[in-house]
Nucleic acid binder design. Structure first.
Lengths: 339, 339
DNA sequence: TTGAAAGCGCTAACAC
DNA sequence: GTGTTAGCGCTTTCAA
């Protein structure tokens, strides 16, 4: 049914070898033979069998992406955009993208292992790095190609891209302090996540600079979801600390926090200021629109994939690490400290 | 480097044939040989080479999912949950999931074509069907296995799962009419999308029943995004129609519409009622929480994948079509008609 | 119950 | 330039 090299070879009275080389444009094939072969291939509608080629080449031309899912519902807008970035770059580079989702832990590690050992992928994109990331430890140990979005604690001897979240948060704090805020609460993701650490680090650094001016910081850990932000903000509002500003470590939690604040009759941006991080599309259309730090997730996906492709192709990446400088997006969710 | 059947065979002094059959638990292999082989395999850490197996079996054990992306930013929470559902079911069934994203049109069709012709996938999951869906037409023509989430206009001779959106919308309208609403505006997605048609159909049917009681309907087309909902609501509010309720065809647009309404100083659920569709996590935490129709996207992904797997395995699905009955989730975004 | 031989469709080494 | 031969790692007839 499917047309093979053999069919073409038979048709034009040559061998499969010749046909193969002609189609792959080897130098040692005569120009008229090439023409002949190509025409025959076109006529018959030849499409190479990927599987056969991959087996022979001992390459899968496939990139693996295992999304770490927490909780049962998995609708982080973050991932879908990242996925699109990775996927489009992969497609452009001639790579397939093999996607799965696994909760961090045993199953996740097994997925990495089996994908590698059973020769399903040539390399991995790692996303949402953890402090002592078992995935990265494993891949490094196996000497298996990968590129990551996010750093880890410790040695950074692998290609990665990351945003300078610490700096982003520093600017958030500076912005808020410029508005007069001193009592600031921060809603943090689980601290095993590296980006949480960076963001918290930025917050702390900013607050340190405010110490002489009476800056006070309360950090509460949450879970990255809107619901988590909502619940955590409620805890915060019940607390005697009574912050004038809430700095959430991502937009989803910020938007959840806004609901909590508004439910109590406070006006966001007046009674309480709130900031996010990521600049997801929703941030522009929250009520009020959310002041946040931009993170170009689609492009980050693209670039992470590009880093990996460079490794796979054996091209020496001149720059194996990319740190993006964030920009503050000022909208209407912050205002001067109330009296 | 990698352990092959040959290595095991050599080690125990049998042939690769025997080893292969032993590992695959064929009946015609002696129990002690099986034991022997298995132990040797374990010792050597044998993992079958997927590529080789696939080539031989002429199956890829891979399911394709090409997400139709509109616009540049692609953060529909819808897709990430659907993806997780499909992916987990696929993994459980021993299938890989090959994901790409393509804007509807030429490129998209080429992706389907090349994935099929180059033997990359065994079947496809189709998502977000269009009225005269070129993907489905093509797959049907090629007689290539697929299952879809969503129906099409015309013959439904393929396995699909869908929610009875028409009925869902009917219930929304009934709910609103019970609250006294008569002048209702509807924000619709592009009408080439099948689910848009079903939802609109439900809306119209509901309004038809209200005609004798002065029911009036205005439908405006938008683009499924929060921004689109926002813009369209603004158009609606500038219009002389002045609806007392806005029925959005998905949650994202509903939430966008809420922003627009609120920006004009109206109170959602009092001055104007708003409803959505999908029940994305965000809907619970919007301000006010959104009354909407539930659509269990994760489960739908799971079931769509299951339908496909049944086809691939040659199992006759007793029920090739699944229609889910929706449930109305009443929250706080609707109230009685203002005077 | 096991082995020998063939082949999935392709590419690569080597000879001519 | 082109053909011969071999082999990627696996499964599957067919014989023994």
């Amino acid at each position: 049914m499917a047309v093979t090299l053999k069919d073409i070879a038979k048709k034009i009275g040559k061998t499969t070898t010749t046909v193969s080389r002609a189609l792959n444009d080897y130098d040692d094939i005569g120009p008229e033979t090439k023409e002949l072969v190509r025409n025959a291939a076109d006529e018959l509608g030849y499409i190479p069998n990927t599987l056969a080629r991959r087996l022979q080449k001992r390459r899968t031309d496939t990139i693996g992406l295992i999304l770490p899912t927490f909780g049962p519902r998995f609708s982080d807008p973050f991932f879908s955009e990242f996925l699109a970035g990775v996927g489009n770059k992969a497609a452009a580079g001639g790579y397939d993208l093999l996607v799965s989702t696994r909760p961090p832990g045993e199953q996740e590690m097994q997925a990495y292992q089996s994908n590698i050992l059973s020769h399903r992928v040539d390399g991995f994109i790692i996303v949402r790095t953890r402090a002592d990331d078992p995935r990265i430890n494993y891949l490094r140990k196996m000497n298996f190609p990968f590129a990551s979005f996010g750093r880890v604690e410790g040695v950074l001897d692998f290609p990665y891209i990351d945003e300078d979240s610490a700096n982003g948060m520093l600017r958030v704090i500076e912005y808020l302090s410029g508005l007069g805020h001193r009592r600031i609460a921060c809603i943090s993701p689980p601290l095993e996540l590296m980006f949480a650490r960076h963001r918290i680090k930025g917050v702390k650094e900013g607050m340190d600079r405010l110490r002489s001016q009476g800056g006070e910081l309360l950090i509460v850990e949450s879970d990255l979801t809107q619901r988590g932000g909502y619940q955590t903000a409620n805890i915060l509002l019940d607390n005697s600390f009574s912050p004038t500003a809430i700095v959430a470590c991502n937009d989803l939690m910020a938007i959840g926090a806004m609901s909590a604040v508004q439910e109590r009759g406070f006006v966001v941006g007046k009674d309480i200021s709130i900031t996010g991080f990521d600049n997801i599309p929703m941030a522009e259309h929250s009520h009020p629109p959310l002041t946040t730090v931009n993170q170009p997730i689609y492009q980050i996906g693209t670039m992470a994939c590009e880093l990996l492709i460079q490794v796979l192709r054996g091209e020496v990446a001149e720059k194996q690490e990319i740190i993006l400088q964030p920009s503050l997006i000022v909208r209407q969710s912050c205002g001067p400290t109330p009296e």
